[in-house]
Write a protein that binds this DNA or RNA. Structure first.
Lengths: 254, 254
DNA sequence: CGTACAGTTGAGTTTATTCAAGAAGAGTGG
DNA sequence: CCACTCTTCTTGAATAAACTCAACTGTACG
């Protein structure tokens, strides 16, 4: 039914990685969590800003983003979500949704009722795992403020691509280590960087001309990681990944 | 020793507000939490990016901010911290600090060892309270991405001032409801907005010319809240405050 | 009285945006 | 298989927004 890569339980267990080892009973509890899986097409809203919510989701397969629209009608993407991410976990605490979460390609999403998640929270280790997930998302979000606020367009473009590459890599989605599927439009990229689409396009061209990346079709390839990270002022520290997560081989042995 | 406004226990209890009522034993647990209080001058780092940490802090009195420095040496402030905030609570989960936290005026800071906080986390209600605090900070941070990324300079300035006013108000720091102490420099404001200081200055002048604010000495007065929030595209939803918190009178009766 | 720092102003430059149009590609229906 | 449409990407040119540099003012403080 699921390949291991997209199996909810496998993804949830990986989410708990930063936490000291799970016991067998922890694993059983995770495996018993009732998850209803739904399939969505491209550009479908999973939840919308302002919704009240009694459930949270986990992205099982595909790609999604969180965005907000300003009063002037401009869109800002505040996060990309990869398989294994729980983009609206905070609704468990807040009850309301504060970003619109949208699929960017056909995706599979697992729905978990808050009541079931709360049950899991009785377990201190699992609780810590979910809290860690929230804290990591917050750390990424703080870095985005810096990226959008204080780096110039070229640098922030390079930074974002570096981040995506590193995160794709860590979930085993970067086949050969440097190439991965990036099925987003330049408009999406611009909305994530707070740039106009024209300017985002020109920044990409510079990165290509410098032979740092290639992006043909939906495949982004990092041609010169060091150079890209240099120009993007990128260090992966803020992602707080452990060594295992930074190595794609970890997935085979997990 | 402390006025109620700056009493650690009082502040901690208010932090738990969003949670269904605390029991007496919860209050006792909070009151017993060992907090070492230290006093710092202006512009002192409480913690620095990259530090490893075995403790977290709570701002008891004063004003602080979290910032990051880019490789090019530019500073971006990613959050302001008001009394009652716990700016590095996430270090409890991550072990490391990812923003430099700096006092902006002479401040009093409470230091709490992680081991003691973890003890509190055995208690499900208190745990939920701290998690809520983390989640709220993350919500503010997402809104900052939008502010810095997709609002023009004038609008984002107005938005930030609206946010600060609302938050000051909610902790009872806005004496008459529209005036409060804002002892920050225009450079700080610029660093929070991702603008040059010259441009930030000019935006402030426009807001003054439109009679939306006055900012003399360290006192910021909102002259026309509706107008300011309009131009700043501000709605307080993302702060997820309850009605009580939005009314300063609540502090008298708390 | 001198120094330091915050705020202000003007002028020129850079960066990024907007507008508009054309090229490339993917999918659809005839 | 072709014509058509739609979307995305690309390019050029004009415009607007924001930045840098540099000087000057005011105020606080020793």
């Amino acid at each position: 039914m699921f390949t291991q890569l997209h199996d909810p339980v496998h993804l949830l267990m990986r989410k708990m990685e930063g936490i000291d080892g799970l016991s067998d009973s922890d694993r059983v509890a995770l495996a018993k969590l009732p998850i209803r899986s739904i399939t969505l097409g491209t550009d479908k809203d999973i939840v919308r800003e302002g919704d009240r919510s009694l459930q949270s989701c986990i992205l099982l397969q595909g790609l999604a983003c969180s965005s907000k629209i300003t009063g002037a009608g401009k869109r800002q993407i505040v996060a990309f979500h990869l398989p294994g991410d729980m983009p609206d976990l905070q609704s468990l605490t807040l009850g309301t949704i504060d970003t619109t979460i949208t699929t960017m390609i056909p995706s599979k999403v697992g729905i978990i009722l808050h009541e079931h998640l709360l049950g899991l929270f009785e377990n201190r280790r699992l609780n810590a795992g979910f809290v860690r997930s929230l804290v990591l998302d917050a750390a990424v979000s703080r870095e985005w403020v810096v990226n959008v606020g204080r780096r110039d367009a070229l640098s922030s473009t390079a930074h974002l691509l570096s981040e995506l590459s590193t995160r794709m890599h860590s979930i085993g989605a970067a086949a050969d280590g440097n190439s991965f599927d990036l099925p987003i439009t330049q408009q999406d990229l611009a909305d994530a960087l707070g740039l106009s689409i024209v300017h985002a396009n020109r920044c990409l061209q510079v990165l290509r001309k410098k032979s740092l990346i290639s992006w043909v079709g939906q495949t982004l390839t990092i041609l010169d990681r060091e150079g890209l990270e240099e120009i993007g002022d990128f260090t992966p520290d803020y992602l707080h990944m452990n060594r295992r997560a930074l190595s794609p081989a970890s997935l085979q042995t997990a």
